[in-house]
Design a protein around this nucleic acid. Structure first.
Lengths: 242, 242
DNA sequence: AAGTGGTCTAGACCACTAT
DNA sequence: TAGTGGTCTAGACCACTTC
């Protein structure tokens, strides 16, 4: 199911990113687009697409008429909400060595919320997987994923400790492409608190999310809970977004 | 300080968006890019850029080889974190008729946090503006903006009830281009609770943000607090982002 | 005036989906 | 196999910053 090599644009992006983190640009000034294009033997469009991605993730900024520059503070932003795709990765970025523990993995009838989120009949069967992500034995993240059971060809599966998108590609023909996430501040209940290793009533963050596949169909209803003392999310908000 | 007319791309985007919300596409299917380009008399690149923006904001989705389609659920997502640029706008999207009240507007020495966030000497003067946003007399959002005082040519200013980006363009030569926001779940203290019209200890969301201008300089340190019972944020998280 | 990023064009070819 | 979106090219002109 794995597809083609990285696009030219992504190769150019990676190449420039390397030079940025290697601090190879004088005064944080990145060469003109035309020069980059010629040096790398690609069109200016390809260079611009690559720079656009780097700008979007905060690694560089551009000033019309002036040039393109390294954004040093932007490079240091960790756990950007828009870029999260697996919690192991998030914890690694923080310098942790993450571990995953599967607490539960079973087929249950969908709750009303899950059925609504996934567009299922009430009471349809879903696979529900509960995991905690830990760093040096301290729980940081608790997740509950619910996936329609009929997406799976076989009812048995291993590897449920994999990141969800890999798990889905392993056992179904669905590819997660995006999530819509609701951000919920909350006091943890007894169950959540116990699994996160904190006292009941501790304040933390929750996400209520629906994940969609390549055909824009809802494939997963997820709820996640985070220890605010160990992990805090950031986001870059841009004017151009609207 | 206002500049040129909307780009062709943005005009095309607006045109297609109109047709989408007007439900003018059969079966939610949007015409091929080549057809749109010819009909509108622009290049396919321009059409693609416009469609790319619409896809990014969740209004459409594309399937390679198959076509481009209206994303009905995506159209209904309100208060998307990435797109927020003024809280009046957010409240309007929710069908509220927002009001703004300026609680405070004064020049004070920067706190340590503010000085660090803005790269100022400790104790430098900053303009601090505190506002609440209300809907039908209920406070929903409380914000505190701190701007270096020496950005202002004159020490007096009116119109401090304007959205911050308009206020800055009115009185300084800085344009806000993006924010880096940290998301903080919290229990409101007595002061916050009183100003938001809730009980002390009520759980809500906070942002701690730094806003940057067109030259990537920090121009505002903002802290904002939200009533979770009246306003909840969402975000679209994409795999392509990384 | 020179240099740089921003927008736009016209066209080629590839990868994938549907039938 | 036909049709659609995805990638890439080469080049033109504009808007803005810098000197």
């Amino acid at each position: 199911m794995i597809t083609r090599n990285p696009s030219l644009t992504d190769q150019v992006k990676a190449h420039i990113k390397e030079q940025i983190v290697g601090d190879e640009f004088e005064d944080g000034r990145i060469p003109p687009e035309a020069a980059l294009a010629e040096d790398l033997g690609v069109s200016r469009t390809t260079v611009r697409d690559a720079l656009g991605k780097l700008e979007h993730e905060g690694a560089i900024y551009r000033k019309q008429g002036a040039g393109t520059f390294v954004n040093k503070p932007g490079l240091q932003i960790k756990s950007r909400l828009e870029e999260i795709w697996s919690y192991e990765q998030v914890l690694e970025e923080h310098g942790y060595k993450p571990a995953v523990k599967v607490l539960r993995d079973e087929i249950v009838p969908a709750s009303r919320e899950t059925a609504a989120a996934l567009g299922l009949e009430a009471g349809s069967k879903v696979v529900e997987i509960e995991k905690v992500f830990l760093e040096s034995r301290k729980p940081v993240v608790l997740t509950r994923n619910r996936i329609p059971a009929d997406l799976f060809e076989q009812s048995e599966h291993e590897h449920d400790e994999l990141p969800l998108y890999e798990f889905l590609e392993e056992y179904t023909d669905r590819h997660l492409t995006y999530y819509v996430s609701e951000i919920v501040p909350m006091a943890f209940d007894a169950d959540q608190a116990r699994k996160l290793g904190v006292k009941k009533g501790t304040i933390g963050l929750g996400f209520v999310e629906v994940g969609y596949d390549q055909s824009n169909e809802a494939v997963v209803h997820a709820t996640s809970y985070f220890r605010d003392d160990l992990l805090r999310f950031r986001i870059i908000r841009r004017k151009s977004g609207g």
